[in-house]
Amino acid sequence: MEAVGLALITIILAYLLGSLNGAYYMMKWKHGIDIRTTGSGNAGATNAGRAMGKQGFFWVLVFDIAKGMLAVVLIKWSGQTEIIAGFSVIAAVLGHIFPIQLRFKGGKGIAVSLGALVIFSYQATLLLIAAFLVIYLFVKKFSISGLLAYASTAMLLPFLRLDMTTIAVYVVVTVLILAAHHTHLKAAWSYLLLRNER
Rank of each mutant, 00 (worst) to 15 (best):
T183K: 10
L156S: 12
L176F: 11
S88W: 01
Y24G: 08
F138G: 10
I65L: 15
V169H: 10
L20A: 12
T166E: 01
R161Y: 13
L128W: 05
K30S: 06
N21H: 03
S143H: 08
F104E: 07
K108D: 04
G79I: 10
I119L: 12
W77K: 11
I119R: 12
H96Y: 04
L178T: 12
I90H: 05
G68V: 05
W29K: 14
K105L: 05
G68Y: 02
R36Y: 00
K141Q: 11
A149F: 10
M1S: 14
Y136D: 02
A43M: 06
S113F: 04
V72G: 02
I119H: 08
V173L: 08
S88F: 00
S40T: 14
K67Y: 00
L102M: 15
L61T: 10
A116D: 00
M155G: 05
Y122T: 02
Y15E: 03
N47D: 11
A7L: 07
A3M: 04
L192G: 14
A111C: 05
I84Q: 03
Y24R: 06
Y122F: 11
L147V: 03
Q80S: 15
G86C: 11
K186M: 00
S19T: 07
V171M: 09
R50H: 12
I33R: 09
E2N: 10
T37P: 01
V72K: 03
W29Y: 15
A116S: 15
Y25L: 15
Q80H: 12
L6K: 07
L192I: 13
L70H: 02
V73P: 00
L117N: 07
A180C: 05
Y24V: 07
A180Y: 02
A131T: 11
A91V: 03
A14S: 14
G41T: 14
T10E: 07
K28T: 00
E2I: 14
R198Q: 13
K140S: 13
N47A: 10
Y24P: 05
W59E: 03
H181M: 02
G39S: 03
T38C: 08
Q55E: 12
A130T: 11
G56S: 06
E2R: 14
T10N: 10
L94S: 05
M26P: 00
V139P: 06
G95Q: 06
K28Q: 11
K76R: 15
L61F: 15
A14Y: 01
G106D: 09
E2G: 06
L193G: 07
F87A: 10
L114N: 01
A180K: 00
W77C: 08
G115V: 00
S113Y: 05
A85D: 00
A91Q: 10
G146F: 04
W77F: 14
L133I: 11
R161S: 13
I167K: 01
A3C: 00
F159R: 08
L147N: 03
V73G: 02
L156Y: 04
Q80D: 06
Y170I: 08
T81I: 05
G79C: 07
L94Q: 03
L162K: 05
L156F: 13
L126F: 10
I33V: 15
N196G: 15
L6T: 03
W189Y: 15
L20P: 01
A14L: 04
Q123K: 15
G95K: 06
L6N: 03
L126P: 01
Q101R: 12
A131D: 09
V93K: 02
A43S: 13
K28W: 09
S40Q: 04
V134K: 01
P158Q: 02
I9C: 08
